[in-house]
Computed example of a mutant assay.
Amino acid sequence: MSVTEQTEVSLSEQRVGQLVADDFRYAHVFSQFGIDFCCGGGRTLAAACDKAGIALSEVETALSKINSEGQKDDALNQLPLGELIDYIEANHHAYVREKAPLLMEYSQKMVRAHGERHAEIKPFAGWVRALIDDLTPHLMKEEKILFPAIRAMAAGETVEGCFGHIGNPINAMQHEHDDAGHMFEKLHELTNHFQPPEHACTTWRVCYATLAEFEADLMQHIHLENNILFPKALAL
């Protein structure tokens, strides 16, 4: 959708997932304001702002600055499905596998050093483990089952598998995306939105910062799948 078309249809009434699909730079603004544009991509901007507890006018001002910067980068949206999958695997799947062990290490160090004195540490570490334990098989299911099927469909080949319609594994992956979003809601509650207390040690601070970065990457990761890859696969 062009900037002119966005002006004709109020930003507040457009769905955040589609806004990001039209211009990936919007993702950075939404991340800064804590707006869920992946699992919550079906919400209008007004509804997403209301859920995040922020002023719609602040977000619209930030988005208007994006529009004034000129040509948008929609390269990922234009990639053939096979190349988009390559990008997701090489960047986002690889990122999860790189950072997940670090998050486990940092959170366990926090338990050993501070778990007995700070009640939030052990539940925090438990949710980090639950998140990683869910994401690890999730990546494998995409790489071994869903992505090969989408590649075959895009190439006009016969899809082999026991899952029936391609919508079935897509629905399963979207459900698991929602689960990850719920886990991050718990982590936000336990960490004051990843803001370490004044007494936090270096590991504590690094862990929160890494987790915030991890969430931002995962939101972009899920957005590419939920709002671009999966709809295009279903349309084949």
Rank of each mutant, 00 (worst) to 15 (best):
E213G: 09
E5L: 08
K99R: 12
R97M: 08
H28L: 15
E89Y: 04
C207W: 00
L45Y: 05
S64M: 07
M1C: 06
G53I: 09
R205S: 14
L218S: 05
H114D: 14
A216E: 15
M104Q: 14
V59Y: 10
Y87D: 10
E60P: 12
I121W: 00
C162A: 13
D179T: 07
Q174G: 01
K72D: 13
S57A: 15
E58I: 08
C207P: 03
R97W: 00
F163T: 09
S64Y: 06
A180Q: 00
H138M: 11
G40W: 00
T4I: 07
L81R: 13
A113I: 03
T61K: 15
R205E: 15
A235E: 15
R205Y: 06
P80H: 13
M219T: 04
H223V: 02
H221D: 05
L234P: 02
Q14D: 08
A21N: 14
E105H: 10
D133R: 07
H92E: 08
P101R: 06
E60N: 11
K232A: 14
V3A: 10
I166F: 11
E225D: 12
Q71W: 08
I35L: 14
A94H: 08
W204D: 04
F214R: 07
S68F: 06
H193C: 05
F184T: 03
F124C: 02
D178N: 07
A216M: 10
D134Q: 11
R151M: 01
A75M: 09
C201M: 11
L81V: 11
H118G: 00
F33G: 03
T158G: 04
I228T: 09
D134S: 12
K144R: 12
R15M: 13
D179A: 10
P80N: 14
A47D: 15
G156Q: 10
S12K: 08
T191D: 11
V59K: 10
K141V: 06
I222A: 14
G167Q: 12
K141F: 12
R117P: 03
P123V: 00
A52T: 06
F163W: 13
Q14P: 03
E185I: 04
Y95F: 13
I166V: 15
K144C: 06
D36G: 02
Q6N: 09
G34M: 05
A125P: 01
V9H: 12
R43H: 11
F184K: 04
A209K: 15
K144Y: 07
E157T: 04
C39M: 06
Q71A: 07
V3K: 15
V9T: 14
E160R: 09
L79D: 00
F37H: 05
Q195M: 10
L218K: 03
E185V: 07
E225C: 06
